[in-house]
Write a protein that binds this DNA or RNA. Structure first.
Length: 495
RNA sequence: GGCGGCAUAGCCAAGUGGUAAGGCAAGGGUCUGCAAAACCCUCAUUCCCCGGUUCGAAUCCGGGUGCCGCCUCCA
């Protein structure tokens, strides 16, 4: 049984193409990381989660993936934010890099193999710019250096725009000529202004323009041609078009074989973006909802489609994670310390993993993979609670196999990576805090109910049921199990 | 004005030529002293509208309508 061929939607060709690594078994991927002038919001988090999941899956499939995600720590916005905060720009950027790393860890994002910074790539940036000037694609002007777009015929090949559309179009934004030969030329290097971070260069003190850093960093860590380049949809133009122009004009080689772009996160019908101001910070969201629940929520929609932020859907995602963890906990308890010996297993436990693999291989179909999970967990529950076969050893062996499939799925998707009991108790603790529940009072009520039930009289049961109803009104749900009475907090109060 | 995307049940969402995955919600059932959890059953003759191609279309083509995005701040 061979693994399904991986097909990926390439923005350049606007169609799905087979994934074909430059070096068999290896993949280099560059993801445009944050410009660190403030906290990341959920829209950013969605994109990074999508590529995190893609990297996990590719590794699950056996590829040796080199994952590069940069920090843009030199930029107009950083300079402005630093000025407003009366802080050194490099220091402000460093601060927000630390904040980003804290958020990324909280979201369970894999650390990239390399996380380069613009401020540490200046020599490489200058070298590319010099090469572009030598080759006649760029010119120095008044301390700035610009890329001359009319000299590069393939310009805009990613976004499929045409240069002339910019001139005759009704774009609201005014195109400024400044020191440029053409208003559409873009800056590779900007002459320093007082108070700005700057570096020495052949054109005087200055700093890199916005796009050039990615050309320099990707070449430095992945080579002049690499396999996959990812980012949000809003980076296609101008950022990626400009990256392509710079890199390919300088090297004469294809920058990247396949371009991946993630869809937006919408809030109330509009793209969540800092410029619109309709953002929810990642850390604020994580104070309210479990990280894996947020991840599950992101995975409920294909990575290229728009996803609408919704408290309801987020709450559903957390309920779903609870189902997964409850199931895993139950199965682990059933299997603990048991050896069912060799022998046949029930049905075909591996089919769920194949289904998941097939979905992910088809342009990373996250919702399809989640569908496979539904079958897997349903079967685990069936076998633990209501096994359809009498042979207990066979059921046990099957559960062992299914539990292993769940581990593989976890590795491929980055979900339910925690110890089930720990995740569940952490969730309860969070809700106890959120709703101001007193656990000791709950335990006391459970003890009182236990005593009332022990009477086994109509009055006793009536009293026990009243205690249950009272607790439920406080969102506390109690469950009688063979191991005793446990409780949890439900999201909704009893109506 | 140019370019691109989307429209599938009450809600979320897969599916791109072969007869509508999955989740949530809802209703019924099993289990339970009562519950919860879990499991089982039911829940779109139909995929925004109108034409066309085809033995066959949610899927392809043409024309509408609506929503969203990019057009040098943006994941």
């Amino acid at each position: 049984m061979s693994a399904p061929e991986i097909r990926v939607f390439n923005t350049m060709q606007q169609t799905k193409v087979p994934l074909s690594p430059i070096t068999p078994g290896k993949l280099g991927i560059y993801v445009c990381g944050p410009t660190v002038y403030s906290f990341v919001h959920l829209g950013n988090a969605r994109t990074f989660t999508s590529f995190d999941t893609i990297v996990r899956y590719l590794r699950f499939r056996g590829f040796e993936v080199r994952y590069v995600r940069n920090y843009t720590d030199v930029d107009d916005k950083i300079i402005k934010a630093a000025h407003d905060a009366n802080e050194d720009p490099i220091a402000l950027a460093a601060r927000f890099i630390r904040e980003f790393e804290a958020d990324a860890q909280a979201l369970h994002l894999l650390p990239p193999d390399v996380a380069p910074k613009v401020s540490e790539t200046i020599p490489e940036i200058i070298a590319i710019i010099e090469r572009l000037i030598d080759r006649g694609f760029a010119y120095a002007s008044g301390g700035d250096v610009y890329f001359e777009v009319r000299r590069y015929p393939a310009y805009l090949k990613l976004s499929k725009k045409r240069l002339d559309d910019f001139v005759s179009g009704a774009g609201e934004r005014e195109l400024l000529l400044e020191n440029k030969r053409d208003p559409l030329d873009f800056a590779l290097w900007k002459a320093a202004k007082p108070g700005e971070p700057s570096w020495a260069s052949p054109w005087g003190e200055g700093r890199p323009g916005w796009h050039i850093e990615c050309s320099a960093m990707s070449a430095k860590y992945l080579g002049e041609t690499f396999d996959l380049h990812g980012g949000g949809l809003d980076l296609i133009f101008p950022h990626h078009d400009n990256e392509i122009a710079q890199s390919e004009a300088a090297s004469g080689k294809t920058l990247c074989n396949c371009w991946l772009h993630g869809g937006f996160l919408d809030l109330e019908g509009a793209k969540m973006s800092k410029s619109l101001g309709n953002v929810v910070r990642l850390r604020d969201a994580l104070a309210q909802v479990d990280a894996e629940a947020l991840r599950y929520f992101f995975l409920t929609t294909h990575y290229r489609q728009a996803l609408s932020f919704s408290d309801k859907q987020l709450a559903d995602a957390e309920t779903r994670m609870e189902y997964f963890y409850e199931t895993l906990k139950k199965v682990d308890e059933r299997l603990e310390g048991k050896d069912f010996g060799p022998g046949p297993v029930h049905q075909d436990p591996g089919r769920f993993l194949r289904e998941l693999d097939a979905a992910m291989a088809d342009d990373f179909n996250f919702p399809g993979a989640l569908g496979a999970l539904a079958g897997l967990f349903n079967e685990m529950n069936q076998l633990t609670d209501k096994p359809p076969v009498k042979d207990k050893a066979s059921v046990g062996r099957t559960l062992v196999a299914l539990r292993e499939v769940a581990r593989q799925a976890s590795r491929a998707l980055g979900l339910f990576e925690d110890v089930p009991a720990r995740w569940l108790s952490r969730r309860r603790d969070r809700q106890v805090t959120r709703y101001g529940i007193d656990p000791q009072q709950v335990e006391a009520a459970i003890a009182a109910r236990h005593a009332a039930r022990a009477e086994k009289t109509p009055e006793g049961f009536k009293a026990a049921d009243q205690i249950r109803a009272d607790l439920k009104a406080q969102r506390v749900e109690i469950m009688d199990t063979p191991q005793g009475t446990t409780w949890k907090v439900s999201a909704e109060p009893a109506s």
